[in-house]
Nucleic acid binder design. Structure first.
Lengths: 203, 203
DNA sequence: CGGCCCTTTGACGGACGTCAAATAGCGTGG
DNA sequence: CCACGCTATTTGACGTCCGTCAAAGGGCCG
């Protein structure tokens, strides 16, 4: 289920519910996910102005979305008195995420990239109140585990981290073996938040 | 010569002449260049709003620059009637470059990354009229060579492409051996623009 | 039951990193 | 003018991380 291709030239999509991804494709068919889009996300603030987009928007789960015409949207937006106060935080965060992804892809190992992707998603979901704290079993001295919906397939993780699905599988298996996370039934639990963050921040 | 570190919290630098780079640093000392800054470049449009920056700005060559106070700059900017028309192309290009870098780091080989970096810089310089066309020698049937200032050290290229200086050296040597480019005396000549672009676009 | 996609696992290969040594360039001071 | 010390570059040997290829489950849905 693909949202749209090159017909974004005058369309500005907003995700209302579900998960989506903006994807760049190379001529040999390899893919790079530029960002995941969660409910409420504008695909990119750059889409408000850009004449032609350089990526696709693909659904990960079932998605509700709305399409605005750029031309209409711009005239509405420009009326707003506090437009900058509204837009600049979005933009700032979008650029921050892009820059962090650049550093991850340029300078971090597969383990770090994958752990950081998961933690970033956990963080974004937490801000929407979409994570659940699981009380640790009995006298377990570890910190409370964190559970979240996790509809991503391993090939999504691979496309987002610049890896192959095969290697993603191996890394996730290692994470599970080490008791850091658990994935089952489209949900992910961070069993050992402190340890997992340590993997992600190594270096 | 370092422009500034964490004191960018209220400062918005603009490069007037020379080359600079915005750099993210990791705790183990490895570095990732987020973008190169040429004369006239605002360091990042996100700096106009961001409370705290996540990167340093370092000079590559001798640099003339101006520092604006964010607070002052904002009040001036918000007066402009056509602010969006001025700002949105800058933002759009900045985001486009960031996205392309993400794809390069995630999905391209060392040769492609380096060739694309050089071509991107050539392109930006050409738009400023800062490249020179060198007529090919005699009956040489190849396209005209392109020459440009190129003050980058190999470690800059390494930091920008997520590689090591050693590997950058090997790739550049190969490019020279294949007659694609020549570097000497802080200048770079693309001897075979068509062939070089072919290397950059592979896949 | 059968087909399809996803995931897992292992063997193997390749691209790039690491380490080390040699060379070159360049400014500084004698 | 030359010695020197520093940094940048080059080159080769070797190692490692991750990709490729292939085969074998596993889950889901018709």
């Amino acid at each position: 289920m693909i949202c749209r291709g090159e017909d974004l030239h005058d369309a500005v999509p907003v995700i209302c519910s579900g998960w989506a991804a903006s994807v760049a494709m190379l001529s040999d068919g390899s893919r790079q996910i530029l960002s995941f889009l969660l409910s409420g996300d504008l695909v990119s603030t750059a889409f408000l102005f850009e004449p032609r987009p350089h990526c696709l928007v693909e659904a990960v789960t079932e998605v509700d979305y709305r399409i605005f015409r750029r031309s209409e949207l711009q005239s509405v937006l420009l009326e707003l008195p506090d437009l900058f106060d509204k837009l600049s935080p979005l933009w700032s965060e979008e650029k921050g995420r892009a820059d962090r992804l650049i550093v991850d892809l340029g300078r971090r190992t597969a383990d770090e990239r994958i752990a950081r992707l998961i933690l970033e998603l956990a963080d974004r979901l937490a801000r929407r109140g979409m994570t659940r704290a699981k009380s640790p079993t009995a006298i377990d001295k570890s910190a409370t585990a964190i559970e979240m919906d996790f509809p991503l397939r391993q090939h999504h993780i691979a496309d987002a981290t610049g890896l192959t699905p095969v290697h993603v599988s191996k890394v996730l298996s290692a994470f599970r073996r080490d008791g850091l996370i658990n994935i089952s039934d489209r949900a992910l639990t961070i069993l050992d938040p402190a340890g997992f963050r340590r993997v992600a921040h190594m270096r």
